[in-house]
């Protein structure tokens, strides 16, 4: 922990300097509706702690969690299917890539029309944004398993299932954690975009409402909260990773 602090010290100092610069600039400009100062944002966060923490944060977290869970199941299933069969790979891989060329933000209003202002239109945006990195990264992880290792197990009489469990899964595990670390912040962004475009609650929705009231600090406060939550979630995944992955890359 001490080592981590030391390693991040330059970054923290630089961040602090940037915040000071921002604070000075915002104070000089004195137009909080366009550029609120960091201190004003923190004050706003404290003022609005009631609705932010009890209503909007849980709403966004629900979207993020459900979206991420669906993405994980979908991504893992697609990756395993594509790894298992060449036909499936040729069928799905191009489609998965094409799905990423869809400008999700632009068509998200359609999702609101289809699924309403409830949670599912937001979940769909989240899933569309996050299932791609999970699918591709886990697929790459499964492919990274060496054929020689599989052949060795085959000479011992191993079945396809045993080869999958004993070689493919351990090989893909570090990739899986990288994928989740990428997907967590993206799912938060996806949820916020979805809420921004049409919702009844959530941090994205709250931020937008503040925008219409020209409350600059109110726009920023939920965004700060979002990034803190995303960072904490990535940190939690990194801890899990350290617990489960004893090995990364070729020695």
């Amino acid at each position: 922990m001490k080592g981590a602090c030391k390693a991040n010290l330059p970054a923290l100092l630089f961040l602090f300097a940037l915040l000071l610069l921002w604070q000075a600039g915002a104070m000089g400009m004195d137009a909080a509706y366009i550029l609120p100062s960091p201190i004003q944002i923190l004050q706003k966060l404290w003022e609005l702690r009631g609705p932010l923490f009890t209503v909007h944060l849980p709403a966004t977290m629900a979207v993020t969690a459900i979206g991420l869970a669906i993405s994980l199941v979908l991504g893992l299933a697609l990756a395993v299917a594509m790894d298992g069969s060449a036909l499936v790979r040729r069928m799905l891989y191009p489609l998965v890539v094409v799905s990423q060329t869809i400008p999700t933000t632009a068509i998200a209003p359609l999702f609101v029309l289809w699924f309403g202002y409830g949670i599912w239109s937001k979940v769909l945006v989240t899933v569309l944004i996050t299932f791609f990195p999970i699918t591709i990264t886990v697929y790459d992880g499964l492919r990274s398993a060496k054929t020689e290792m599989a052949e060795l197990l085959r000479t011992y009489g191993a079945t396809r299932r045993e080869i999958f469990l004993k070689i493919k899964v351990p090989c893909a595990l570090p990739y899986f954690f990288s994928a989740v670390k990428m997907a967590v912040p993206m799912s938060v962004i996806g949820a916020a975009i979805g809420e921004w475009l049409g919702a009844k609650s959530g941090l994205g929705y709250f931020s937008r409402r503040m925008m219409t009231q020209l409350d600059g600090a109110g726009v920023f406060a939920p965004i700060v909260l979002l990034s803190v939550v995303a960072m904490a979630a990535v940190g939690a995944v990194a801890l899990l990773e350290r617990r489960f992955v004893r090995w990364r890359g070729e020695s």
Binding site: L152, T155, G157, L173, E250, S251
Partner: peptide, 17 residues
């Protein structure tokens, strides 16, 4: 099953075990 003990050129020790 495993009628012959095959040892390839690379040791192929699994680095996660």
């Amino acid at each position: 099953k495993g009628a012959c003990g095959y040892m390839p050129q690379k040791d192929l020790l699994f680095p996660w075990r």
